[in-house]
């Protein structure tokens, strides 16, 4: 397993924990979906894996190595990409500059960094047309495309996505999930949290349902596909 979370406990203030012993794993070349109601602790789990919050107990292992003390700035060097909640483009920097910063972890390999940026422009006509435009002037959907492209520039082995489809048009939601399938095809392990349970279920190999800080249901996503509505009604 690429990522293994065991008995993870996290709390913000002294008091009740937000996560009360979560077990979850993500394999290479696969998509793992995580769904749950607002306040279930989904974002907290992702933030903890990525080093923005400290655990109170349990273990987080990446490639069998403990990453519980990882700083967020060390993620990229480990091959972990993280799409955080909300917007994360640099609005005052151009699209091109945003992409160049996506190669920061291997900026000293100039040829590779340059090539990665050029490939992103080749793949996305939207970004190509806006190359010299400040990212803050793009539409919400275009910003998300930029974030998704920036995320994969250094060929991450694990991609962690927090609500990638939030606020997007149906067409763009479709595009985002196609991009996730592409990441899987490229060999990455993907952990995706999204409010659109149906899309997550369709895109995932394995599905977890988080409820009040605990995993209440898990299993192969295919086994949920015909009763996803029931699942959403009962647990989300």
């Amino acid at each position: 397993m690429l990522l293994q979370v065991r008995e993870l406990k996290v709390g913000y203030a002294s008091g009740a924990d937000v996560l009360r012993g979560v077990d979850l794993s993500v394999g290479a070349s696969s998509v793992t979906g995580l769904i749950g109601a607002n306040g279930a602790g989904k974002s907290t789990l992702l933030k903890t894996i990525c080093g923005f919050l400290r655990r109170r107990g349990g273990a987080i292992a990446f490639d069998a190595a403990d990453i519980g003390k990882l700083q967020p700035s060390q993620l990229a060097a480990h091959g972990i990409a993280y799409l955080m909640e909300g917007h994360s483009v640099f609005p005052g920097l151009t699209v091109e500059e945003n992409l160049i910063l996506g190669t920061w972890a291997f900026r000293k390999e100039r040829a590779r960094a340059k090539q990665a940026v050029e490939r992103a422009f080749e793949l996305s006509s939207v970004l190509r047309a806006k190359r010299k435009v400040k990212a803050g002037l793009l539409s919400g959907g275009q910003q998300r495309i930029l974030e998704m492209e920036r995320l994969t520039l250094n060929d991450p082995r694990l991609v962690i996505l927090d609500e990638p489809s939030l606020g997007l048009s149906p067409k763009l939601v479709h595009e985002v999930f196609e991009r996730i399938a592409q990441m899987k095809a490229d060999g990455a392990g993907v952990l995706v949290v999204d409010q659109s349970a149906r899309h997550v279920c369709a895109a995932s190999d394995h599905l977890y349902v988080l409820r009040l800080g605990e995993i209440c249901i898990e299993g192969p996503a295919a086994s949920f596909s015909d009763r996803i509505d029931e699942l959403v009604r009962n647990f989300i």
Binding site: C50, F52, Q71, P72, S73, Q74, L75, A76, A77, A81, Y82, M84, S88, V89, F90, P91, L101, G102, W104, A105, R150
Partner: peptide
């Protein structure tokens, strides 16, 4: 965006 900058390394 300090957090996004951190995530990029």
């Amino acid at each position: 965006h300090p957090a996004a900058a951190q995530v990029l390394g």
